[in-house]
Design a protein around this nucleic acid. Structure first.
Length: 268
DNA sequence: TCTGACCTGCGA
DNA sequence: TCGCAGGTCAGA
């Protein structure tokens, strides 16, 4: 599932539900998802801690609770659910958190590509690129970053060490909106194209956040419902269908071993 | 830079 | 039965 809009949706939903909640028990059912601590450490560190905040950095979700900071990467199929009854794959629930109030929180990940870390201070994510929403990524900054690279623009957008949070769906959608072919090299983009690209990165991601993300299979919000953004996609998963702008067929190619969708006529 | 590996479920 | 899927990482 989870690119920036899905992780941000989850963060926004968890915040009002769990801020101020004190953890009674944290049951880690699949210890190998935990990357930098022992299961024992995890089990012992969390009880008694009160959740203060949920933050996001790129595709990472960080829980602030006292001096402990569990960090989650949701991989391809990780989701959080507040109600076990909403789980379609209860056998793939890897973490259960039970709170003093009786509330519960479940981390489910069918494909087990998700990862969990446990930090004793706020994690810093060295090597992670700029946040695409907000002030950090200005048009000038984007132009500078593009100039210094020689790669396909789609792979540039998906590089987490360059811009943090864009994945395969939104890279295709952003490039369609900006009318730029995914095959273009970064250093071939002209200033007007860069300005449009900058605008569309913000517009596409923000709109997807407003629509609670894109659901194709596993992704659900914390409430267990699908996102809405799949109803607004222009090219992703629309191979051989007519482009909404020009009517020509949407093409599917493989780029960096990932499916890539675009309109040859509209995107140059 | 590219490929395969990590996993499981689903649809053709 | 096979290929594919929203992500990342190691190794060639």
């Amino acid at each position: 599932m989870p690119e920036l809009p899905e992780v941000e949706t989850i963060r926004r939903q968890l915040l009002p539900l769990y801020r101020g909640e004190t953890i009674r028990k944290a049951i880690l059912k699949t210890p190998r998802l935990l990357k930098n601590a022992s299961a024992k450490d995890f089990r012992r560190s969390l009880p008694g801690k009160t959740i203060e905040d949920f933050r996001r950095r790129g595709k990472f979700l960080i829980i602030h609770c006292g001096e402990v900071y569990p960090v989650f990467h949701l991989g391809m199929s990780g989701i959080f659910l507040k109600d076990k009854a909403e789980s379609r794959y209860p056998q793939h629930i890897h973490l259960e958190m039970i709170f003093d109030s009786g509330k519960q929180l479940y981390f489910q990940d069918m494909r087990k590509f998700g990862k969990i870390w446990l930090y004793k201070k706020p994690p810093e994510f060295p090597g992670l690129g700029v946040e695409p929403l907000g002030e950090e990524l200005s048009g000038e900054r984007l132009a500078e970053m593009l100039k210094g690279k020689q790669m396909n623009i789609k792979q540039f957008l998906m590089g987490q060490e360059i811009i943090a949070g864009i994945g395969n769906i939104y890279a295709s959608e952003i490039l369609f909106a900006a009318k730029i072919s995914p095959l273009r090299k970064t250093n071939s983009l002209q200033p007007p194209e860069i300005a449009v690209l900058h605008r569309e990165i913000g517009a596409i991601l923000s709109a997807a956040v407003e629509r609670f993300g894109t659901t194709y299979s596993a992704y659900r919000t914390v409430e267990g419902v699908s996102g809405q953004n799949q109803n607004f996609l222009k090219v992703y998963q629309r191979a051989e269908e007519a482009c909404y702008t020009c009517g020509k067929k949407i093409r599917k190619i493989v780029l960096g071993s990932r499916s890539t969708f675009y309109c040859e006529n509209c995107q140059r």
